[in-house]
Design a protein around this nucleic acid. Structure first.
Length: 429
RNA sequence: GGAGAGAUGCCAGAGUGGUUGAAUGGGACGGUCUCGAAAACCGUUGUACGGGCAACUGUACCGAGGGUUCGAAUCCCUCUCUCUCCGCCA
């Protein structure tokens, strides 16, 4: 969540940023309300502290009186203490109310977009940061979409997945399953080479974790929830991996902390039926390798571009056409300050599919998580958190199958061959 | 799942109602000593939220949340987690 200090000291920036996200004048009032509630909170806190101090002083006196055998006087003082206790109790509950109101308002404010974030409301307004300059693949006349290829070569069984679980839960088999495993290994190896420590996190998290990275309360409907144990299936490895440092104070010299994890991701995608859900385009369970960084605020934007570059290299090496979008204010995620989306060209479907999202959250998540470091002046500071997909598998597989289909079968990019153990799907050579 | 034990500062570990934000030891940091280092000795070593230009100061925090009390790390309740034993089990 946003630091109140930013709302106080940099109100103009906050207003401009939230307007970029499409905030109405009315919703912007929340800023002033928050500041005013925070003032109230401080005032109540001060009053309460005075009363508590009074109580503590009197209690000490009572103790001393009892020690010196003056029980009578002590009992008189007890009566006096009662009054301050009652007053303190009233203040305390008022303070709690104020804090609750403050928090309720604060969680409704999304992160302030970085100044470079393009203006705009819808995905159409996203700015192309890097267009694809090469040629798009030309397919044979009888080219088919990936879900048909998957069936033709017996790589993915959508029907069986539906039978076992429900729609949106594909079952990979044979070379399809091996391709999945190969991609995961390849991506993890590349991340490790780039200095990321490999993590295998739990696939379910508790509410505190989901809250810290911003899935709660904002995106509750997106997550599968295990009611009996009060746990959430992770929608991305970002959640458990970022939370590894929840509440932690690290040394400045520890930064940046670079972590990577492969996990399945579970997303309910409630309400998104209809278009775009065919085949692997939008599924409830998919595999993803995530990269996460905790960085010094002064370096976080350089780091963001490094992560963008890392993902670019992956796409290049897979020989897939892609473009990079700089998301506009209206299309950005709630917690993000800047997001670059990667879209792969799906040649048979003739459309761009999102395969990676690289974001800088600045101090937004760190503030919720209370992850800090001590700077060179000895002051506590919130770290900046960043993450990105590197990469999300399902749609990459869709593009690999479609774009590389030939009369003889599907030819995989060279970098994958050591991982798959085969170069061709459909052609036994 | 059943029975028992426990949860204290960076770590280990005291503390069972009244200067306990917390003994002691270790670690870390600073200093003295030394050509340098080790050893020894001295000192420092929390977070959050307030007030103050500042020195400083108030409040809260000993797993979490409630309660008892003038006063709680210390007593009571609930929850979470850890350990030991039993059961089950990849």
């Amino acid at each position: 969540m946003l630091e109140i200090q930013i709302l106080r000291d940099q109100k103009a920036r906050a207003v401009a940023g939230l307007k970029k996200r499409g905030f109405s004048e009315e919703r912007l009032l929340a800023i002033d309300q928050i500041v005013s509630l925070d003032d109230q909170r401080k005032d109540l806190q001060t009053q309460l502290d005075v009363l508590l101090n009074e109580r503590n002083t009197l209690s000490e006196e009572i103790g001393n009186l009892f020690k010196s055998g003056k029980a009578q006087e002590a009992n008189q003082l007890k009566v006096k203490v009662q009054a301050t206790k009652d007053a303190a109790e009233a203040l305390e509950s008022k303070l709690q109310e104020t804090k609750a109101a403050l928090d309720a308002l604060l969680v409704t404010l999304p992160n302030i977009p970085h100044t470079t974030v393009p203006e705009g409301k819808t995905p159409e307004d996203n700015k192309v940061h890097k267009a694809w300059e090469g040629a798009l693949p030309t397919l044979p006349a009888n080219a088919i979409p990936h879900w048909e290829l998957a069936e033709k070569y017996n790589l993915i069984d959508f029907k069986l997945g539906t039978f076992l679980t429900g729609s949106g839960f594909p079952l990979y088999r044979g070379k399809g399953a091996r391709l999945q495993r190969a991609l995961i290994s390849y991506f993890l190896d590349q991340a490790r080479r780039a200095g990321f420590e490999e993590i295998q996190p739990p696939l379910m998290v508790n509410a505190e974790s989901a809250y810290a990275t911003g899935q709660l309360p904002d995106k509750e409907a997106q997550m599968y929830y295990v009611e009996k144990d009060d746990l959430y299936l992770i929608p991305t490895a970002e959640v458990p991996v970022t939370n590894m440092y929840r509440g932690q104070i690290v040394a400045e010299s520890d930064l940046p902390i670079k972590l990577t994890a492969y996990t399945p991701c579970f997303r309910r995608e409630a309400g998104s039926y209809g278009s775009d859900v065919k085949g692997l385009n939008r599924v409830h369970q998919f595999d993803k390798v995530e990269i996460v960084q905790f960085e010094h605020p002064s370096r976080s934007y350089d780091t963001l571009m490094e992560m963008v570059s890392h993902v670019s290299h992956l796409m290049d090496s897979l020989e897939l056409p892609y473009r990079i979008l700089h998301l506009c204010g209206g299309d950005m995620g709630f917690t993000s300050a800047t997001t670059y989306d990667f879209e792969v060209w799906s040649a048979a479907q003739q459309k761009w599919l999102e395969v990676s999202s690289v974001s800088n959250f600045e101090s937004f998540q760190a503030n919720r998580m209370k992850m800090r470091f001590r700077d060179d002046k000895g002051k506590m500071q919130l770290v900046h958190t960043l993450n990105g997909s590197a990469l999300a598998l399902a749609r990459i597989v869709a593009a690999l199958l479609e774009n590389n289909q030939t009369e003889k079968g599907i030819r995989l990019p060279q970098v994958l061959v050591p991982y798959t153990g085969f170069e061709w799907i459909g052609e036994e050579s």
